[in-house]
Amino acid sequence: MAQPLEQTTTAKTPKAKSKTRPYWVEPVVTMTVLGVWVLYSLWEVLFHNSGTYHNYISPYFSPGVGEWFGWHVLDALYVAWVPLVFRFSCYYYRREYYRGFFWDPPGCAAADKPRPRYSGETKWPLAFNNLHRYAWFLVLIVLIFLWKDAVEAFFFKNGFGVGVGSLILLVNAVLLTFYSFSCHAFRHMVGGDKDCYSCDGKPTTSYKLWQRVSRWNVFHGTWAWASLASVWAADLYIRLLMMGVIHDVRLF
């Protein structure tokens, strides 16, 4: 009868001293980080045609759809929109960018001028966020390729080996997996849509899956930030290798 969903919230250490920061600090930080990330991504996607360095391939350029069909104009564009759409419609990032960019709201209980024209997610284009599940399916395909890339990153010209790049790509794949499988829409698909898990007798597989995803879902925001950082790091590492700024370190 344990209630796993609640433990994380009630187990907070008592008396976390409330240092009162101005309410705008958090949204400004979010805005800056996400803004820089977007600018970097645009630079990466619009000014580069390849993300491959030997056996490493940047997550921005995988899978190499352009290569399959011989298209060589802005190679990353064929794929990079998928994770972008996934993150844009993600329930966690929605919290972040509505707070950071729209200031709806800038902070909890902040006093703001009344803006009666707000329409939430009832109108297009923001109503598009309701189709987050399709972005999930698409990103699942990408994720399979990223795992393939991660594995291939361990196979160098001279056989199996471990480089810093291999590890980065592996960590990236792991974090993205957690991020994708802790998704609210996925949680809904695996059993959240049911009202009763035991009405046909014993609790079903669906219940167990839903429980597991629910447990991950608690940390969806953490996975979201961690995987954002790992994607960025992976791409930056490979870009720097390609530019010859740094050299890959082989661990063995």
Binding site: M1, A2, Q3, E6, Q7
Partner: peptide, 12 residues
């Protein structure tokens, strides 16, 4: 686990 499930209010 038992206490938190059966007596959550008291715990809190």
């Amino acid at each position: 686990d038992y206490v938190k499930a059966k007596l959550p209010g008291m715990y809190e």
